[in-house]
Amino acid sequence: MRLLVFGQTGQVAHALQALPQDITALPRSAADLTDPAACAAIIREAQADAVINAAAYTAVDRAESEEDLATLINGTTPGAMAQACADRGLPFLHISTDYVFDGAGQTPWKPGDPVGPINAYGRSKLAGERAIAQAGGHWAILRTSWVFSAHGANFVKTMLRLSETRDALSVVADQIGGPSPATGIAQALVTMAQAMADGQGGGTYHYAGLPYTSWACFARETFALAGRTVQVTDIPAADYPTPARRPLNSRLDCSATRADFGIEAPDWQAALADVVRKVCA
């Protein structure tokens, strides 16, 4: 199967390239995400069986002051990609986020639940979801959360870096979600693409790790696996203010993904052990 992937250096794009697939991964120098027409033209000319958009504007806090740019990259451009795929009859897969929800309550979010993003980044990603759906064709949106890997910038690598010089940290404990390994997301996307190429599946899905946990507990597990003694103090999100508000409830219900594609929610603890081993090697 020939896959055209927008993105090359991000966590999921990097993981996709490590899979035994025929993948053409496009860096930003080859695919300008601020130019929807150019990205659509690439799809129209590509020799591909499916297209995966693993590229995005991901600077959550900066998006508060750059919402127009974030919406162009995360909203308008994916819509143009989806339209080009629809015109060619190609499956289009796109990564979205738990940030499209408002984070209320404690019940895991299902794909069809009401959305209500509380920050600019979430609004920009929701704009992309809606543009993709409006384009028609055969598409799938995969919402995920708290992505981590041995590559790129993420919470796990930040904690490990801080633990080299700090023996105590305060970490938010009232935001609950499912850490998601980039390797698992990549494999899920390939599985979905293969099924969609055969005419199966389509729509909005969730993929996130189990069991649900807090950032503070995620940090403790990271330090334990790395053999580093760091005292973690639980704090509420209100004590760690950021330009962009984060949802307190980022739990995602992944049952539809399992039902349609046979993809199970990943065990983030097992995946974390592998990532820590690689980072600390």
Rank of each mutant, 00 (worst) to 15 (best):
D87N: 11
A237H: 09
A15C: 04
G10L: 05
P20D: 15
G209H: 10
L189E: 02
P78M: 10
G10F: 10
L160C: 02
A41Q: 15
A38L: 06
A63Q: 04
L33R: 13
A41R: 14
P111A: 03
G112Q: 13
P114N: 11
G122T: 11
A271C: 13
F223L: 00
A120H: 13
D174L: 01
V232K: 02
A173G: 02
F155C: 00
N53V: 04
K157L: 01
R251G: 02
E66C: 04
V230R: 00
A55N: 07
V12C: 06
A195K: 12
V12M: 02
R143S: 02
R220I: 01
K125E: 09
R220H: 03
Y99V: 05
I52E: 02
V275S: 09
A168D: 00
D198R: 14
S163G: 14
I141A: 08
V172N: 01
N249F: 04
T76F: 07
A173T: 00
H206Q: 06
L160P: 04
F101V: 08
I235D: 02
G136P: 02
K278N: 01
I132S: 03
A127C: 08
P114V: 11
A54C: 06
T144E: 05
L72A: 09
I73H: 11
T191D: 08
E221A: 14
P36F: 12
F218W: 14
